[in-house]
Design a protein around this nucleic acid. Sequence first.
DNA 1: GCTTGACTAATACGATTGTATGATTTTATG
DNA 2: CATAAAATCATACAATCGTATTAGTCAAGC
Lengths: 207, 207
Amino acid sequence: MKSSDATVDRLFLVARRLFAERGYAATSVRDITSRAKANLGAITYHFGSKEALYQQVLLSLVEPMVTAVIRECNQPGPALDRIGALVTQYYRYLHQNPELPRFILQILAEQGPLPRALAELQNRQRGALVGLIERGQREGEIRPGPAPVLAVSVIAQPIFFGLARRVVAEIGRMDPDDPAVVEAALRLASAIVRQGLAIIPQGGIPA
Amino acid sequence: MKSSDATVDRLFLVARRLFAERGYAATSVRDITSRAKANLGAITYHFGSKEALYQQVLLSLVEPMVTAVIRECNQPGPALDRIGALVTQYYRYLHQNPELPRFILQILAEQGPLPRALAELQNRQRGALVGLIERGQREGEIRPGPAPVLAVSVIAQPIFFGLARRVVAEIGRMDPDDPAVVEAALRLASAIVRQGLAIIPQGGIPA
DNA sequence: GCTTGACTAATACGATTGTATGATTTTATG
DNA sequence: CATAAAATCATACAATCGTATTAGTCAAGC
């Protein structure tokens, strides 16, 4: 069982990388198995099909992120603080899992209905975030407007940064793997979201 | 030449739709030609290859948007006003061309180097936007920080809204084609970006 | 030590891919 | 009307796709 586990793991990791880089259709079973130094039939044997492997890879990336986001949303404290922390956490998670933004894109670009497990995850995350925003609006912290639209504004920042990380780094001549750079960009994104959503009191900048 | 032009146009429109929906690899020449009621060889004949057709579709969508953005960036006036107008324009353009966000995603997700024509367009747009942001920073309107990173924050909003338009509409039970809804979401996105980038003076909200 | 089950390996299969080919039809031009 | 160019058409082609099949390898259990 030792070497077989290793094969499953190699297939899984290689598939995650290739699916992220090229998308589902552009990644062949032969691409994956040859790079994983496994046999052509290994995917069918271990995962059932190419499609099942893709779903498994996708869920393994999305699931922990969504649960983390939901946990963050449900913690107490001012809504804007929670949203700031959420952007931070989202950002960090995407930085540690650079393949995930591409999968998110593939999900967004999907036309048909999502797989059931994925749709449920998405619903839960959306509900938590929308609820948090509505609470902030009730408490006078967050600007009025349809909460789902505001939620998109929030989510757009970390995801887009995760996507454009390499591009931004090239342009700004920054090292995207330098923790200091990551922290700086992260704080900037979080601050922009907070300030953009806030109701600015007459006295000046909110805490 | 009449009906032949019609064939080229049908191929072009169908290809734009299918490439946007499914991506390049998942769209076959047979998909396109059959839906366009054209012969299987029509793409090779009129465009040279599937790849050439894709590039042509892509450029036809990106080019007018980039030139519009650059024109907006170079107009005079307070930088924040220009950025607000830019987000508005971007948003409207994406709304009128719902396929474009998907192509932008495909570009972003691309690993290898972009086609030359596309890379040049991207460079010009980026340069114009970064220049505008840096001007706003010099004039004390826009918060400090690396301009390329701020530029990503700006661009992320309209693109992500264009992507998530249908999703947002479903959640918020809004009609994404209702001009009033579009205008409202547009103003909200523009206001969030402006406020998020601004340096909030002690007196309250800037004009 | 044989057997059983898990795994790997090699190959084959039909389906689908993008493109090439050559014949045929349509269109424009004299 | 005749002729040349342009466009459409039906096929053919090799390559690649995902999966199925079958045989071979290996380690654990009795």
